[in-house]
Design a protein around this nucleic acid. Sequence first.
DNA 1: TTGAAAGCGCTAACAC
DNA 2: GTGTTAGCGCTTTCAA
Lengths: 339, 339
Amino acid sequence: MAVTLKDIAQEAGVSITTVSRGLAGYDDVADETRQQIRQIAERLGYRPNLTARRLQKQRTDTLGFILPTFGPRFSDPFFSEFLAGIGNEAVNHHYDLLVSTHTPDTPGEIEAYRRAALGGWVDGLIVVRTREDDARIRLLHENQFPFVAFGRCGCDLDFPYVDEDSEAGMRLLVQHFVELGHRRIGFIAPPEGLMFGRLRRDGYLQAMADNGRTVEPTWLVTGDLTQRGGAEAAGRLLIDAPELTAVITGNDLMAVGAINRLRQHGLQVGQDIALGGFDDIPLAAYTAPPLTTIHQPIYEIGRRVCAMLVQLVNGQTPNPAHILLKPTLVIRESSGKPI
Amino acid sequence: MAVTLKDIAQEAGVSITTVSRGLAGYDDVADETRQQIRQIAERLGYRPNLTARRLQKQRTDTLGFILPTFGPRFSDPFFSEFLAGIGNEAVNHHYDLLVSTHTPDTPGEIEAYRRAALGGWVDGLIVVRTREDDARIRLLHENQFPFVAFGRCGCDLDFPYVDEDSEAGMRLLVQHFVELGHRRIGFIAPPEGLMFGRLRRDGYLQAMADNGRTVEPTWLVTGDLTQRGGAEAAGRLLIDAPELTAVITGNDLMAVGAINRLRQHGLQVGQDIALGGFDDIPLAAYTAPPLTTIHQPIYEIGRRVCAMLVQLVNGQTPNPAHILLKPTLVIRESSGKPI
DNA sequence: TTGAAAGCGCTAACAC
DNA sequence: GTGTTAGCGCTTTCAA
């Protein structure tokens, strides 16, 4: 059995209260007593029972993060870095991280949020992959439960978030291609429903319009954000829109798949066709050719989201409560030379 | 404030106990009473306070996973899939996952394990990236705290684990290259200290010896498991061991970096030089050229590790307690044609 | 400077 | 069937 305050108290011949205060470093305990208590605690290998402490303090010192997973083969390089960001920041503030995995938009998922918010499961939640109409955010907002989102949402609720400026990113990317002389630029869009997908898609359309480029319906296809999805979508573009000289993908993972598919088709990416991604996952620098993309400081975003949440659960108001990061363009070889 | 049993009891005009039992579905509660209790609970949006329940039950229904992170830019595609595996399995058994990030071999890390094991933090722990001499495993073993490791360790303690058979994997890889006609095969080894690194390295040496190939000292270099590290190591091999016709890397991430470096050097991987990786990360199929590698079912490993741990914390003995998975060779283009 | 007592929200043994 | 009581391990008044 684990060592408790009681054990120490017995050993030291004092009350539990005294032990508690002695270890907590209160100054109303005699130095001598404290010394002794400390020693015994050390010798017995005492660790406070966190559950008990939590029940008493009415707080868990734990932050929650419900990871969206899609079937078995989930592997967004993105999330491990994000997780490292929040994890490291949480450790700095002495918070633990409770992670749960759920498939998006399932009863299990929303129930997990409900439990978390109403069952004293955690002190605050981190919400990622925000959706255009996000039931999770509505739930948390209604219950006034502390949370910070990575991403905005389509509803008009006010909540703290960190997000990258997708539209600005897309503008940079389109502009880059336009400057290289491209006129017919396709887009492999993220699936419907995801907020960042909509913003990136709108950003692309807007940037095209701003540059006086009309977008043919066949130029815009949808992929499921995976390599496979990117490859498939690129395949469709090859058939339905062979006139394209450049393609932008909604995320880097799809770009990786697209590169592959295009090469299979005998096209040299960066030469015969230009390609741009979005995210700048660590891998992007190592594809062949290396990927031109929009850099998103994902580790940093994780850190900041977590830092904001810590403030929130401590009763402070994060300031600013809305962070929109300006993305930067990373030019590598996949976008090729001017034509 | 959150709704408690007390609130429901008051509302229903019964005792807390009755409410507790009614909600738990005990059959010694009158149907009518139960109905009423259920209704009120529903109406009030009651969620049990997990902390209280945990304190009472003396178990947390939570599994711990301490993620090794190395500085800010941590992103092993590996871990997100592993995490998905344990996460999904944990959810199935109604366990939560407490994740903490720590830099390996730091005081903070071992303290996290100590807290976890001695402070009733979690019911069981998952240990990954086992080390040749692993203080974490020794600690948990000494305290008889339930844990399952992904990987073996160099000490002779008996503990449950799931591992891939690195040696078998390396044998497959070396054999493959030997059959293609290669004689001079280099190796980019994982850093010292990691158990899987040692096993893969030994596996390579053993397989080379078995095939009657002597390994020159310059053929074996070390990389830090990242793309960058793989690129650097490949650079060293290009200078110090230009006679190599094939190179094996200790993991796929380094292979990705190596491909890049070799191409910069004007070598066509899969043609001028053969390359093989280890892990079969999702990306491996999408590098240029696609990577020949050893497949590790990482999601599945996560699932099984978690399933074993669940058994363990429930007082059962996982059988078998030691799982050594036979890896499979995935031949893609990077290993090239027979020479 | 120390201890007794209450209570965090819940479960479970026992009595009625 | 239902209530009383005790207790999980800890913190925190309040008295002594």
